[in-house]
Nucleic acid binder design. Structure first.
Lengths: 265, 265
DNA sequence: ACCTGAACACCGTTCAAGT
DNA sequence: ACCTGAACACCGTTCAAGT
């Protein structure tokens, strides 16, 4: 479905900044791993992950699919690259004036808040890409949980240690924090996708969804208006605050009773 | 890769209980939506999601791929069925003597603990299937977050209301609980997959992973032994307990100050 | 050096045909 | 009624060939 034979839209990538455009030779060719990755992200954002094929991505770049293999070993590696690009975009301050670099200037609590908001921002900016973050095998599998961005893990651990967390507490904090972030954002992003796919994919059986007989589910029926409300942003802030409170408590308790009864080794 | 031409293993489904096996006619044919779904789950567990194709699933069942379309509208629908089957397996007590039915007998706290353990059990039993739970579009998209099992949402809401939670508090609890559960289990399951894929997919470049130069990541290097420890089970219990404490606090606060300053509407 | 054409082995899915 | 064969449009990927 959704044929687009009538309209050639091979200029999605033309939405670049413009500095290299004046060079003169970067228009149709100038293939490049980074350009391919950016095009892939744009394509996934526009058409969904399932729609991204090597052939279509090639066409989008004005080239045959086979040309991509000069710069990318294969489709799986391409997806890894997409995830890495999106995650790393946290660090190159792309025009965000406020929460500039993710340094640990304002203390660990401020850092965790800024990091959470940063990750949420990229998740909402690329809702169709974000699930990949959770499903791709990690860069360093021995890190539990593995987050694919070692740079982010490193930055996290540094902040917590600077903030006075013991080694064990820093690692425990990393785990609690990353599972909170992943869980919340994945659900939020799935919601976005669900709303879209209702108007998009099934093409007209939106009532088939509503006709799910809720007769057997009185509480669900009853609470539908509350359940349907989108409180994601508020809940995100509340959960984040709660997590910070918990971590702060752990830190203070450890300071008062100055023995290491946390874990062995 | 991983050719298995030498061994015909079309009897994966033969691991059924045995009552209908005595009927005599269920051996090679007897195709059936439920049988197909069970075979699909077994296949994903054994070979991963990416390896599941209609053709291979057909072969597994001793049939051409095209025969499956009599019982399943297509691959996407098949995957939905797989998710639903796995999630609903929570409710048919499949030989678990202890945490029997998910009724709200022991109060809502006991219920939440049993539900969490039940979901964790099926996640760990089908680690390759579980990510689908998070990525498939939900049955009722207007439920936020959408969990694909309306029965589970209904059961959850009933328990909380019985426990004295207001409508708003019950819905808020549902959201906090489901995002905790999803986040934790997804990370845990990803870890499992990462360990497996190291020995499985790349076929010998396990050192390529370790050779990721950690020189630029001093904290990571430093904390490697702690980060590599699998404390999933403990962390799961702790996070769950913490969530329950929080919910209990909310409930009591609401009882003491008997006004509804929670939300508007 | 960089891209293409043709080819290979595989997909999901349809449908007329077999039994 | 239930399954198959052949076919269609599409995949990812390889590789010799073009420029």
């Amino acid at each position: 479905m959704a044929r687009t034979d009538d309209k050639r839209d091979a200029d999605v990538v033309a939405v670049t900044e413009g500095p290299a455009a004046a060079a003169g030779l970067t228009r149709p060719a100038g293939l490049d791993r980074e350009r391919i990755l950016r095009a892939a992200i744009a394509y996934i954002d526009a058409h969904g992950l399932a729609a991204l094929t090597m052939r279509r991505l090639g066409a989008q770049l004005g080239v045959e699919a086979m040309a991509l293999y000069r710069y990318v070993p294969g489709r799986e590696d391409l997806l890894d690259g997409v995830v890495d690009t999106v995650v790393e975009s946290l660090f190159d301050d792309d025009g965000r004036p406020d929460d500039i670099h993710l340094e640990h200037a304002g203390g660990w609590q401020d850092y965790l808040v800024r990091l959470a908001h940063g990750v949420r921002r990229i998740a909402l900016a690329h809702p169709a890409v974000f699930p990949l973050v959770a499903s791709r095998p990690p860069a360093a599998p021995w890190v539990r949980p593995p987050l694919r961005s070692l740079r982010m893990v490193e930055s996290f651990l540094a902040s917590m240690r600077e903030g006075g967390f013991s080694d064990q507490a820093a690692v425990a904090a990393y785990r609690a924090y990353s599972s909170f972030l992943l869980g919340h954002l994945l659900l939020e992003v799935t919601q976005l996708g669900a709303q879209v796919s209702l108007l998009d994919l099934p093409e007209g059986d939106a009532d088939a969804q509503r006709s799910t007989d809720l007769g057997r589910y009185p509480h669900l029926t009853d609470l539908e208006p509350l359940l349907a409300r989108d409180e994601s942003a508020v809940e995100f802030e509340e959960s984040l605050e709660n997590l910070l409170d918990r971590l702060t408590r752990v830190l203070h308790e450890a300071r008062n009773s100055e023995d290491g009864a946390v874990l062995d080794r």
